[in-house]
Computed example of a mutant assay.
Amino acid sequence: MYTELKTVANKIIGITNRQGGVSPYPADAMNMALYIDDAPENVITNQQRLAEAINFSRDNWVFPIQIHDKEVAEVTQDDRGTNISELTEKLHGIDGLYTYDRDVLLTMCFADCVPVYLYSDLDNFIALGHAGWRGTKEEIVKKLVEAYPSPEHLHCMIGPSICENCYEVNADIKSQFSSDAEPYFELKDNGNYKIDLQGINKMLAVKAGVPSEQIEISGICTAEDERFFSYRTEKGKTGRMLAFIGTRNQS
């Protein structure tokens, strides 16, 4: 149903798998997106299954309307429930969330793009970013790190996403990246470039002040691992995983 990427004290960091739900992608799939061709009641059932599995009520989840851009927003307990049962105009155009509040589960949907998770070892700060090639180019990870005053105390997890062997971009897209990203491109015989989005996002986190030894890369490719949906492998006809990070109240 889900892959737990890390458990630190009372924090939970993970991403859902494609199996274990009730959506038709194919049968029994764990689609977590309300914005694709799936019945809303299927998505809500899938949400409830995850909520019970991770012991984090869906009433406490927050979900933004992602547009592959660079805007980030702080949320609090007052935002809990946003865009969970139905989509609204709240948090529209947001691809990065952060909070200092406990009992708030930050969530975003993915199907190849890079989920970037941040948490502090000083307090309850957590953050979640959606970094496809556009979000990576716009350095959304840097914006999330800059939202916290002490980046040396941040830890970063770069979650399952498409790897460089399964994803290529053309020269025009490559030219939009800063020169720091040059080592993460590899020219192919067809004139396009492999791109290591996971590696670029780690580099950006380090540049923003997160110590390299406090950054982990999952190394999981969503296009190769059958546990996950892949937009590119399945040519857009697929579901979406839910990446999540939250801090529970200690018992």
Rank of each mutant, 00 (worst) to 15 (best):
S23E: 06
G246T: 07
A111F: 09
N31E: 06
V8T: 12
P40G: 10
V22L: 08
R80S: 12
N83Q: 04
R240T: 01
E186W: 03
E86W: 09
Q48L: 02
G159T: 09
G209D: 05
H130S: 10
A171D: 10
Y148I: 05
Q198H: 09
G14E: 02
S179F: 09
R227C: 00
A111M: 08
K143A: 12
G239K: 00
V210A: 04
A208N: 09
D180F: 14
V22K: 07
S120T: 11
A33L: 02
T76I: 12
F110I: 01
T99N: 09
Y100F: 10
A111C: 14
N10R: 08
A131W: 04
Y100V: 00
K194D: 01
Y119E: 04
E71C: 03
R227Y: 03
Y231S: 06
G239P: 00
A205H: 11
R80Q: 14
I54H: 14
A29V: 05
E224L: 14
H130C: 05
N201W: 01
D28F: 11
Y119Q: 04
D59Q: 15
F125T: 11
G191R: 13
H153Y: 10
R240A: 11
R80K: 15
S85E: 15
N46S: 06
S175Q: 08
A51P: 13
T99M: 08
C109W: 01
N249T: 15
I195W: 02
L34H: 01
T88I: 03
V75P: 04
E74A: 11
P24G: 14
R58W: 01
C113K: 04
G14Y: 03
M157E: 13
V8Q: 10
L204Q: 12
D103F: 01
S150W: 08
D95V: 06
P183A: 06
A147E: 10
M157P: 00
G21K: 04
K174N: 02
F244V: 07
L122Y: 08
G81Q: 07
G21T: 01
H155T: 07
Q19L: 12
D69F: 06
Q47H: 15
F244G: 09
